[in-house]
Amino acid sequence: MSKIAFFVLAFLSIFSAMMVVFSRKPVHSVLSLIFCFFTIAGHYILLNAQFLAAVHIIVYAGAIMVLFLFVIMLLNLNAESEPHKTSAGKIAAVVSGGLLLLVLVSVLKSTDGLQLSAAPDSQVGMVKNLGMVLYDKYMLPFEVSALLFLTAMIGATMIGKKELD
């Protein structure tokens, strides 16, 4: 049952990820990306990480992608007004994309021999366990990353303020 769900979700996420690149209209790309996030949330649920799935949808699909959609709707991009890309830029994109693929493939190949260190626990992704781990074992990294977000927030406010003066 969960195997079928996994394959359907995997197919949908790869398909929608490809639609992000291939669709002609920018708004359709963004919508495919949102759909892709939903399928990834589905994968989290299959891995018993309900909390992560919910937060993923609220933060990525619910907030960040709304801003993406905002910008693209206001820019009103279409085929005619699309800026022409130089061939040097295209070549650079292909080379860097290929290198990324190479790295990903090599990393994935090296995971073949890995064994699971612990038996899968169906309760591992529940809010209670996650909270215990975050605020107990990984307290310092958690707080440091919170500080990082705060800095980013203040930075964004500063940049926004500058334009007003």
Partner: peptide
């Protein structure tokens, strides 16, 4: 509650 927030944000 998070489920409700997720749906609202969609």
């Amino acid at each position: 509650i998070l489920y409700v927030f997720g749906v609202v944000s969609i």
